[in-house]
Computed example of a mutant assay.
Amino acid sequence: MAYNHIRVYARIKKENQMAHSSRYELISDCPDGYDSLQTYYGGQNFKRKRRVFKFDKVFEPHSSQDDIFNIIAKPIIHDVFSGINATIFAYGATGSGKTYTLTGSQTKYEERGLIPRTIEYLFQLVTNKMSNYMFFISYLEIYNENAYDLLNPKQNITCIEELPRVIVLEDAKGEAHYKNLCLKEVNTEKEAMRLLYTGDN
């Protein structure tokens, strides 16, 4: 089976440029092919401590949603068509920009995130390949260490805890199975986007 190594990217959130310049220094095009991000914390300049982190790439505040998609998601989508399982996982503190990066703005088309761009691109590729593909979508949220199906057909819920919990089970081969998780087939980009919107809401 084909496989790829895990890639790790950092995205620096837009904020006051002066605040940024005092908190980090980016060193791109290192000899080893990685970007180095030096961060500073504590005290005044002469007392500040420094930590260095290496990433496959660091996206600066001016990076666009299009930049993020083209560099992170596009190669992974092509890997999927080659039979490689893929995951894009966003990690960061509350308010650090995870939701914006993944789903983007609902009012500005050019600011849509990785998920809607991926859906659009998948259907473009399938149309161009003129091949037989089937797409299925699930939408799972982990909240307070419990998993919930955001596409569950149950109506009139007032909070997420009223949805049935999704239970993760492992078979003898070590493969995960999800009890109480909907798997919905979609045939068009529009259908997939509608499910994304439903889950978000």
Rank of each mutant, 00 (worst) to 15 (best):
R50A: 04
G199P: 01
G33N: 08
K98Q: 07
I72F: 04
M1S: 11
E110V: 12
L114E: 09
A176S: 09
G95S: 02
R112A: 13
A19L: 11
E15C: 03
F136W: 07
D56P: 00
R51V: 11
N187Q: 12
G92H: 08
S28V: 05
L125I: 13
L195Q: 04
L102W: 09
R11L: 06
E170Q: 01
R11I: 03
L102M: 15
P164R: 00
A172D: 07
I71W: 11
N85D: 08
R112G: 02
I88S: 07
T101H: 09
T87D: 08
N128I: 06
I167K: 10
N4R: 14
I68P: 03
R194H: 14
I160E: 10
A90Q: 01
I160H: 12
L125F: 07
A90F: 08
K98M: 06
E145R: 01
N146P: 01
A192P: 00
S21A: 10
R51I: 06
D79S: 09
D67A: 00
Q17E: 15
G43H: 15
T87P: 11
Y9N: 13
V186H: 09
G174V: 00
L122S: 04
F59M: 04
H5Q: 10
H62N: 10
N156G: 02
Y109Q: 12
C30W: 07
V8L: 15
P116F: 05
I160F: 05
F136H: 08
S22P: 00
